[in-house]
Design a binder for these strands. Structure first.
Length: 595
RNA sequence: CGGGGUAUGGCGCAGUUUGGCAGCGCGUCCGCUUUGGGAGCGGAAGGCCCCCGGUUCAAAUCCGGGUACCCCGACCA
């Protein structure tokens, strides 16, 4: 098919849209691929919709190839299935809810684990039916707190989600691996640069999980890489246990007056001034910082949590939140401090000294029973300066294990470039990426909640084990745009481009348009997808600029070369131009596009 | 949820300080010229100046209230 620009529903913008910050958003709007309708909600115009459908096509081909079967669920879903799995409440404000005329509760599907599970339960009941892999490409709805960056994080977006159903863990492992391979083929074909990283499973629940991240500055996920090949989302980075602590005689813990030291900085300064160490100066890493937050459970229960980390680290909220799933982390407010008078702002510590000796102040053993979790770096035998639970007082030489314990450890401290990698291969490197795919082994969470069981060989009912696999289809379009654009515009990989070739008729002679017309129809007949700039009333400069903005991989300029019987073939990505005799043009271009 | 900003023709913006005919560039339409890097001249269409209320002879502009959108942040003990 030939797309003629004289009639194409397209208006490119000369200026950047004012509300677009990231390149993909800016260029997709400027080049006439998408238009904003509401925050995080976009319309797809002809060129954009072609790209989206191309991405879908690649995904379908590879999913089908790996044995997946396509189905299609509604986006409008009744409350009951989500009630059964607890997600009606667990999702909180994150879903769009609505009522029908009879006051029935509905939601716009944020993801479809429940419906897939119920459908299989509805039809299948034997081990002979498994394994099974189903997928759909669906519009999903999530009421994001802050939609941003165009189609990178929208409230309505297109997602491919698939689910595997297996009798046992070994089967699930095989299904997982199959999906992993399919994803590798998909993202390779889409021309994306990507990294597979260890991940946390988030709101879906489940165990083993990996993300496909497309490295990009505008990405919302931070991930790490080690020289030895370890890669993980920061949320999933495991802090390697430090070696055993050299046993030195640490004097008994002692409380000191440290007036006006509510921050680590002021505390360290005062310690160096008033309580100097003989061997070196105190630093922030000698202090144990105790951060208090509120955990809000899905059922609305709010409880305080204190996290102890070395004072030279900050708490990474997203890591903490990943660690306490499905609870949400909220800041500890003034009101919270008021209702928890045992917590002295700025001077919180794990031990109290009412009797002159260290006794547990935080944690399950203490009277207040405030949950207390420690950073993995705070191992037994380490020695700290920390709050003494009284204004203007800190305790020195407090030894973990000797003077206090905690209710466990938590991965909540920020990850820094240069931190040791868990695989021991050296320092971690940090980078940002866009999450384009996520695969994980769900296990039996949904099958149990919705009672999906089959009979095995022995006639026993067994709960099916599931995997869940997502690809952000519309987000992949943005990710490609983020990775492959340049100053002049978009640069599509051929597989997803709205056309293979953009013909620019440059000049005003009828001969130019006649030659361009003929080339367009010859290419079309040869099966090449053609975008043809046949506009007569537009200057050549505008056509060139538009061709670069639109980003079709091969641009053919039919114009002044005709005198010598040639056309120009320009590679959008490299900018390289070659002159090709008109007589060879079709053969040349067909070969170029099929390569 | 907190902070900052914005709201004027399809898009980008000026005008608001100091109240007085609603403007500019791009785009669109008509005519003529032009056509290898975002053309020229002439003419034209297109507006609830976010909404509600107030002050005033007079409000895009001042006052009060509201709404929407954009960006940043979300713990720093």
């Amino acid at each position: 098919m030939i797309l003629r620009m004289s009639t194409l529903f397209l208006r490119t913008l000369r200026e950047d849209p004012v509300d677009a910050e990231v390149p993909s958003h800016r260029l997709l709007v400027r080049a006439g691929y998408i238009r904003r309708v509401a925050p995080g909600i976009f319309s797809w115009l002809p060129l954009g919709y072609r790209v989206l459908r191309n991405v879908e096509r690649v995904i379908r081909e590879e999913m089908d190839r790996s044995g997946g079967q396509e189905v299609h669920f509604p986006a409008l879903i009744p409350r009951e299935p989500y009630e059964a799995t607890g997600r009606w409440t667990e999702y909180g404000d994150g879903i769009f809810r609505l009522r029908d005329r009879k006051d029935g509760d509905y939601l716009l599907g944020p993801t479809h684990e429940e419906l897939f599970t119920l459908l299989v339960k509805d039809l299948y009941s034997s081990y002979k039916d498994l394994p099974l892999s189903l997928y759909q490409i669906q519009t999903k709805y999530r009421d994001e707190a802050r939609p941003r960056a165009g189609i990178l994080r929208g409230r309505e977006f297109v997602m491919k989600d698939s689910y595997s159903f297996d009798l046992d863990d070994a089967g699930q492992q095989r299904s997982y691996e199959k999906h992993r391979q399919a994803y590798i083929r998909i993202f390779d074909r889409l021309g994306l640069d990507y990294v597979i990283v260890a991940a946390t499973s988030g709101a879906m629940g489940g165990s083993a999980s990996e993300e496909f991240l497309a490295p990009a500055e505008t990405g919302e996920d931070t991930f790490v890489r080690s020289p030895g090949g370890y890669a993980a989302n920061v949320e999933a980075v495991v802090t390697p246990a430090p070696g055993p602590v050299a046993s030195v005689d640490v004097p008994a813990a002692h409380v000191e007056d440290t007036p006006d030291t509510p921050t680590i900085e002021t505390l360290v300064a005062l310690a160096n001034d008033r309580f100097p160490r003989p061997d070196r100066r105190w630093n922030a890493g000698d202090t144990l910082k105790n951060v208090v937050v509120t955990l809000r459970q899905p059922d609305g229960t709010r409880t305080p949590l204190v996290v102890g980390i070395p004072g030279d680290r900050e708490v990474d909220l997203r890591r903490l939140e990943a660690a306490v799933q499905p609870a949400e982390v909220e800041p500890f407010t003034d009101a919270d401090f008021a209702s928890n008078p045992t917590l002295v702002r700025g001077y919180i510590g794990p031990a109290s000294f009412e009797t002159g000796e260290a006794s547990q102040y935080l944690g399950a053993e203490a009277t207040a029973k405030i949950r207390y979790l420690l950073d993995p770096r705070v191992v037994e035998g380490t020695r700290w300066i920390t709050g003494a639970n009284a204004p203007g007082r800190h305790v020195f030489d407090l030894v973990a294990g000797r003077d206090f314990t905690a209710d466990g450890t938590v991965e909540a401290a920020e990850v820094r470039a240069g931190d040791p990698a868990p695989d021991g291969s050296g320092p971690l490197e940090l980078a940002r990426g866009i999450e384009i795919g996520h695969i994980f082994q769900l296990g039996r969470k949904y099958a149990e909640a919705l009672d999906l069981k089959v009979l095995d060989e022995t006639g026993t009912l067994v709960t099916v084990t599931m995997g869940s696999y997502g690809i952000g289809v519309s987000r992949a379009v943005a990710a490609i745009a983020e990775q492959t654009h340049d100053d002049a515009g978009l640069v599509w990989p051929r597989e997803v481009a709205p056309a293979d070739v953009q013909i620019v008729a440059a000049g005003r002679d009828d001969a130019v348009f006649q030659a361009a017309d003929r080339l367009a129809s010859d290419l079309d007949e040869a099966g090449i997808r053609v975008l043809y700039d046949d506009r007569r009333n537009v200057s050549t400069g505008v056509k060139f600029a538009d061709s670069e903005l639109i980003g079709v991989p091969t641009i053919v300029i039919v114009g002044r070369g005709l005198g010598e019987g040639t056309i120009e073939v320009k590679d959008r990505r490299s900018g390289e131009r070659v002159h090709v005799p008109v007589t060879d043009a079709v053969v040349h271009l067909v070969e170029l596009c099929r390569r």
